[in-house]
């Protein structure tokens, strides 16, 4: 199925988590410090500020920058419940609080989408190892 169409369908069916406080009430500035390091920890797979490198491979990691907040929230909740099967994302989603899921989704939805590259490889120089 067309990926964009699929995404739109998923967004339209999003149900926000209930946790006493609606996700919309979340104030980003209160959590900026906590969220910036937590979000940066996703960079190993999802790239700096959520911009994953794209190599046109089937298994590129998802670029999170600029995605709809509600969509990210729903994905993480579905990974957590198992509603959406995952190789590894259920491990991460299960370790986060709902509040953190909201903060991360908010953070990534506000990041600018930037094309990122894998650095160029080089020939190993003839220097001694330790």
């Amino acid at each position: 199925m067309n990926k964009l169409l699929l995404n739109l369908m998923l967004i339209s069916s999003v149900i926000l988590p209930s946790q006493g406080k609606a996700a919309e009430d979340f104030v980003y500035a209160d959590h900026a410090l906590h969220t910036r390091t937590l979000a940066a920890s996703c960079a190993a797979c999802h790239g700096t500020q959520g911009n994953a490198v794209t190599l046109n491979a089937e298994f590129d990691a998802t670029t999170l920058a600029g995605l709809d907040k509600a969509y990210i929230v729903q994905r993480l909740i579905d990974f957590r419940s198992g509603a959406r099967p995952a190789t590894v994302m259920h491990r991460h989603a299960n370790g986060l609080s709902l509040e953190e899921i909201n903060q991360l989704a908010d953070y990534f939805s506000h990041q600018k989408k930037i094309k990122r590259h894998v650095p160029a490889t080089q020939t190993l120089k003839a220097v001694h190892d330790e």
Binding site: A44, H46, G47, T48, V53, A57, F59, A61, H117, V118
Partner: peptide
Amino acid sequence: KAWAHNIWSD
């Protein structure tokens, strides 16, 4: 492999 590419880029 995607992990490696992204962490190198990061």
